[in-house]
């Protein structure tokens, strides 16, 4: 605390689009001082939006306190509050937005709404040093290939139906794997896949730079129910097929945009096999491969704080009366004046 320079400014960011409630604190120069989150774990099934929001409201105070402790700064030191304004689950977004509005009003500092997907890209760039990457963002709710072009992050490829993380999670749930705190179902599928030996051919659906995963999921679940292949082989085949599709569209976008950096982020970025496939493609196209460290690749408050700073220092603020949440706020609808 005594080593801090007197003029440094701080932003607190709140992330609450889905099952994570996260708080991050960043200096305006991009030093992350705190990044704390608490994940809602459903007793059974997927994320229930209302239950997740209830969880966020319960843990908000503790997570905030912990973030202040970790950062070593006090609430009155803050110059800016940022929150994820969308896209995401309504009740969850509203809980985070309410906390953000209250903090900004109480402290008398500006509020800025951040697009969650832009947040993932920006924290990825900050952490890896990539400047103008082609980004593959793969998580429970998103599967998209995006790159900056003419003022915005344009979507070059995306899923036509379900997200990659969703595909792996639902498969895990359908075959009876259990969700544990800190271990997503996708990670359990990854562990089983490592023991798979025989590749079963499953539907492979790439359309241009888009892909479709719902048919693959159905086919894999059906094969499991028939009991004709081992669970390990099915996990292996599901991963190999889905990741090959994602890698193929990423390679297409890389060849198309001719970007020289590839950035992998989102919760599924933790998967080692996916990392290896994408690195292979990046090498082939003489692009650098940048994998975002896990605590900044999954949903987190730091990415919101940092992107809030970028927005604020480029003239963007979100007055409370316009801080309504945007459940369906596509990444390509957001102007990013800090990129040129």
């Amino acid at each position: 605390m005594s080593t801090q320079e007197p003029k440094e400014r701080y932003c607190l960011g709140i992330e609450s689009t889905a099952d994570d409630f996260g708080v991050g604190i960043s200096t305006f120069s991009g030093q992350i001082l705190a990044n704390i989150s608490d994940c809602y774990v459903p007793a059974e099934g997927g994320i229930h939006p209302r239950e997740a929001a209830r969880h966020h409201a319960c843990v908000a105070e503790i997570v905030l306190k912990e973030a202040f402790t970790q950062s070593g700064i006090k609430p009155k030191d803050l110059s800016l509050i940022a929150f994820s304004q969308g896209p995401g689950l309504g009740p969850c977004l509203r809980t985070g937005a309410t906390v953000a509005r209250a903090l900004a009003s109480y402290l008398g500092v500006p509020l800025v709404g951040v697009n969650h997907s832009v947040g993932h890209i920006e924290i990825g760039k900050l952490q890896t040093g990539a400047k103008d990457p082609l980004t593959l963002y793969v998580s429970g709710g998103n599967t998209l290939v995006t790159a900056f072009s003419f003022g915005r992050y344009r979507v070059f490829g995306e899923t036509l139906d379900i997200a990659l993380g969703n595909c792996l999670d639902v498969f895990g749930r359908e075959v009876g794997l259990k969700h544990k705190k800190g271990v997503p179902l996708g990670a359990a599928v990854e562990q089983l896949a490592q023991r798979g030996k025989e590749l079963v051919l499953l539907p492979y659906v790439v359309k241009g730079m888009d892909l479709s995963l719902s048919g693959l999921l159905t086919a894999a679940v059906t094969l499991f129910q028939k009991g004709e292949c081992t669970l390990e082989d099915l996990c292996y085949s599901l991963q190999e097929t889905a990741f090959s599709m994602v890698t193929e569209i990423t390679e297409r976008a890389l060849a198309h945009t001719e970007k020289k950096e590839l950035l992998l982020t989102g919760g599924v970025a933790a998967n080692k096999r996916l990392q290896a496939m994408l690195k292979s493609v990046a090498d082939e196209h003489n692009a650098t491969f940048n994998s975002v460290p896990l605590k900044f690749a999954t949903d987190n408050g730091a990415m919101i704080a940092w992107t809030g700073i970028l927005a604020f220092t480029h003239g963007l603020v979100t007055p409370v009366e316009r801080s309504f949440v945007r459940l369906r706020w596509r990444v390509d609808k957001v102007d990013v004046p800090w990129m040129k």
Binding site: L201, E240, S244, A276
Partner: peptide
């Protein structure tokens, strides 16, 4: 041939 995917899938595609 794409190194990133398994041979069986690669050949099929």
């Amino acid at each position: 041939s794409k190194k990133y995917r398994p041979d069986k899938l690669d050949l099929a595609i």
